[in-house]
Nucleic acid binder design. Sequence first.
DNA 1: TCAAAAAAACGTATTTTGTACGTTTAAAAG
DNA 2: CTTTTAAACGTACAAAATACGTTTTTTTGA
Lengths: 241, 241
Amino acid sequence: MTPSSASVAHASNNDFYADNEKLYVATDCIVFGFDEGDLKLLIFKRRVEPDSGIWSLIGSFVQLDEDVNDAARRVLKEITGLDEIFLEQSKTYGKADRDPGYRCLSVAHYALIRIDDYDKELVESHGAYWYTLKDLPKLALDHDQMVADALNKLRRKARQQPIGFELLPEKFTIPQLQQLYEAIYQRELDPRNFRKKVLSLKVLVKLEEKDKSGSKRGAFLYRFDAEKYQELLESGYNFEI
Amino acid sequence: MTPSSASVAHASNNDFYADNEKLYVATDCIVFGFDEGDLKLLIFKRRVEPDSGIWSLIGSFVQLDEDVNDAARRVLKEITGLDEIFLEQSKTYGKADRDPGYRCLSVAHYALIRIDDYDKELVESHGAYWYTLKDLPKLALDHDQMVADALNKLRRKARQQPIGFELLPEKFTIPQLQQLYEAIYQRELDPRNFRKKVLSLKVLVKLEEKDKSGSKRGAFLYRFDAEKYQELLESGYNFEI
DNA sequence: TCAAAAAAACGTATTTTGTACGTTTAAAAG
DNA sequence: CTTTTAAACGTACAAAATACGTTTTTTTGA
């Protein structure tokens, strides 16, 4: 029986790929974090030959009995220890010559994690580090392109959904939120207009506490109200930040 | 040598997938067209066993020496005879059990074609037909989901780029263009505001001819000025329809 | 032949949203 | 106890989206 999706008559038996030929499928994860006012990326330096010393994204082969997005979740769990995080497919990279070793295509995913949540020791034990986006080193293969594409996705996504909260701790101040959006959009925003805009969305809950780390005066902490967000979404509300 | 993208230590030799196991990669194309005021989809009825009689998207396996997007172009060329058309990656479908026959993942692409351009005989010879989106039959496997996802992509894309012109003939009237956008967005638009908006983009060239097919009075034909569009794009102009 | 009908084409008013920027307030630091 | 800094609040103007009126062109059929 032929895979039903292959409609154009090519494979009529299960030897479409000859016995000695293989097409590998991997997944690579573009892991974004936010710290000290900067967007960061979790990348990883190979410690063993071949390619020892080359920076690349974290990734893995997709196993034969494994959903592709599960493979991405597995990688993230293995490296960061984190389970339930924002993870979304970005794009598939399928050039025949993208990997000099094998024919291998990669389904890229991007993830957003709260940088204070992850398991530091686990990350370090895998040779992974957080790099500020601006001074990212050259990465292996087409991983630079993957980062650029994922960043674009993140920007578009951030404009339509209050996705940024995935990158901040539970409690955050409005100036912190603004810093994050400035880092994502790579441009400065007017603090007065930003506050007005973000409060008008009505998905922030003001807390009694203040955070004094950012300024003398301190700023009130807020939290994101996911329930209210859901409610408003369902009633057709439009979120643009 | 290990594929460099597989960073998480799994495959250390080229037998990560056992000799008797294979992971197939296919591509499926969601082909949109526009005719008689409706968005249409090119789908195809298998004529041979197995799955004879089941409707599905057009697709093919990705060959071992072939870029994934080239595979999609090849499929389109084979079925429609068309070469240089709008084609973009949509999403990759990678559930382990999505195809009951094999482990096979599919990189979906969506395409926009001018419905009067394609090669009718070639299409029919492959058992493919144009279906109005609204009364699409149930499709094979996860192809229904593919269509839904691609339609969403198309909607987003159409809002940010004057992509709709890909679906119309060279010459078209403003009411026709409006019909197209109404079909894409699935909602009615005010004809006066639509005209104002679309003309304000300054990428339409008014011709001397009129098209009388749509109304008694007839409407002036326009064409899309791709050069001017490029110019404006490069000078940072913002297109939203 | 000419009035009614229909849709194209043009125009105006109102509302909403975005942008620019002034003022007040709270707390720390000299 | 004044100065400094950033948070928090507010106002004015510009641009964009929306709602809807009017004129024009042509066909249809009374």
